[in-house]
Amino acid sequence: MDDSTILETRDLNLWYGPKQALLNISIRVPKNTVTALIGPSGCGKSTLLRCFNRMNDLIDSARITGQILFEGDDIYADRTDVYTIREKIGMVFQKPNPFPKSIYENVAYGPRIHGERHKEMLDDIVETSLRRAALWDEVKDRLHEPALALSGGQQQRLCIARSLAVEPRVILMDEPCSALDPIATAKIEDLIIRLARDYTVIIVTHNMQQAARASEYTGFMYMGRLVEFDRTQQIFEDPAEELTENYITGRFG
């Protein structure tokens, strides 16, 4: 693992019961970049994303072999604390899922359960996180209103702010714009690009134009395999694999 790699998998295999969902995935995710994972439904891209912060541990039938290294350390090692991993590697889901609490409490929730009790400190974290998620100006005068009263796009940015509040290194996003209109999508995409200055973002998307617009690296997955991983411009201008070319140009099947 070189200095520029923050997450790496080595010969990663994953089974859901008898069905193998990931086959020998070896990928190096560069630090402070946006990496997109694309591929048809069922190709394993969300499964791979969920491996990065051990979300698949929550599925009883899931079993893995191989290694996943975060900053060089095996996240499945006995000494590794899964909660620390999920603090360092946050996740934003397809459908905005704010807690049924106020805007402020949504963002303060993470730091609170990690032991932060000082109000000034929490205020500071809430403001910083909301600013980083490009939501502060829209909500600063109504921090104590219910989060569920926000629009879909605002709710998704709130979820991003919530994940930023515990100071992660990596943010995983599973189709974060699929429930949003084009304007809200554009705001999230701008935000994703800005976030990559300070964080590493890995995004799963069905929207190839989104991958092309927002990411620097793209991985194309098919039937549980990582077919190709390269700079996004290379993937969309001149992919090395015919399978990738056929998928991105719609000549699939």
Binding site: M208, Q209, A212, F236, E237, D238, P239, T244, E245, I248, T249
Partner: peptide
Amino acid sequence: YQPVAKDLR
């Protein structure tokens, strides 16, 4: 159509 790869080329 936002073409890519060989279509774009």
